[in-house]
């Protein structure tokens, strides 16, 4: 494990011995591995496009006035199918991008809703993933490092949460947090839409990472580099966060990536249960709205939202797997 020692420190210790090349750290190694498979660049660029769309959706370019505006007749089919109803207002305007993917029940553009939905999906899943990763990492580190009653308490907490089927706990929490007002420190908080979903997802999904981290930290705290850090007088928090955390950080990254996938999918379930976002389009709400449209042969809203989720999930899944292979040395050569 070389990441605990900085190159400068190595130089002074080694004295006259010059290092011909920079040390091969786990991260440089992993990047090199990711680089060898060119498909990873494809996944990364698709993800970059999703991110870009989400950022654009934060600007007025895709604001409420855009996705909420009526742009055509009810259920106008996508422009590329070439079936434009005669005599309607949009007969001559098939080239308008708003009609590329047709319209929904209120004549709103499916394309714009889809693009705006990227913002909701990425906001929800990124925030939920950050929340769950932070909880899981901190609790895992503390349990593994301190052991004793801290460990017993944290282990009890995650075993308990793990003993409640995830979907039940998540749904119950989402239900409890929906449209709630809280008074805390003299201030009022109102949880509407995205914050309550993020909390419901994030607070229930940290167990897997916490357990992994705890196991890993239990091994690391006995390693020589931790003993060395203690010997030079490093404080406990410094040892945990500057020495042990970087050496176990690959677990965090992998969990973060794959967490996003499950949160995007969970948003669909929450929307179906009436616990999703309100007053703004999201992929989950679109699929939920489309559940009866398909029988009327209105397939574009359903297909668009499903494809958007599919594209994001598949890229994250493949990239997550590649990351796992690149970062976890134990898996190398196994599969």
């Amino acid at each position: 494990m070389s990441s605990a020692a900085t190159p400068a420190a190595v130089d002074t210790v080694m004295g006259a011995v010059a290092l011909s090349e920079r040390p091969r750290s786990l991260w440089r190694d992993a990047m090199a591995r990711l680089h060898t498979r060119k498909l990873n660049y494809v996944y990364a660029s698709v993800l970059a496009i999703y991110a870009l769309v989400a950022i654009i959706a934060f600007t007025p370019l895709l604001g409420k006035s855009v996705f909420d505006a009526q742009v055509g007749a009810q259920y106008a089919p996508p422009a590329f199918t070439g079936t434009v109803e005669q005599g309607t207002a949009n007969e001559h305007s098939t080239i308008r991008p708003s009609l590329w993917l047709g319209t929904d029940i209120a004549g709103r553009s499916v394309l714009y809703k889809l693009l705006y939905g990227t913002r909701v999906a990425l906001t929800v899943s990124l925030l939920a993933s950050i929340l769950s990763v932070v909880i899981g990492t901190v609790l895992g580190l503390l349990a593994g490092y301190y052991r004793g009653w801290v460990d017993a308490l944290i282990t009890w907490l995650y075993t308990t949460i793990n003993s409640i089927p995830w979907i039940l706990l998540m749904v119950a929490l989402a239900y409890a947090l929906k449209d709630r007002e809280f008074k805390m420190f003299g201030q009022e908080f109102k949880l509407v839409g995205i914050p309550s979903i993020v909390m419901a997802l994030g607070l229930t999904s940290w167990v897997g990472l916490c357990r992994l981290m705890r196991g890993e930290v239990l091994k690391h705290r006995e390693r020589d580099y931790v003993a060395a850090a203690k010997a030079v007088g490093a404080g406990t928090s410094r040892i945990i966060f500057r020495h042990i955390l970087p050496n176990t950080f690959h677990l965090v990254i992998i969990d973060f990536t794959l967490g996003i996938v499950s949160f995007v999918q969970a948003e669909v379930i929450l929307s179906f249960l009436g616990l999703g976002v309100k007053d703004q389009p999201s992929w989950g709400v679109m699929i939920d709205d489309a559940k009866l449209e398909l029988m009327r042969n209105v397939w574009w809203q359903f297909a668009g939202a499903t494809a958007a989720i599919f594209g994001l999930s598949i890229c994250l899944n493949f990239l997550g797997d590649a990351l796992r292979d690149a970062l976890d040395p134990r898996l190398r050569g196994v599969d």
Partner: peptide
Amino acid sequence: AVLGMCVPYLSIIILGQS
């Protein structure tokens, strides 16, 4: 298997049903 995992559960139900 990966492709199947990436399609939302609700979408599969809706598609199968209709």
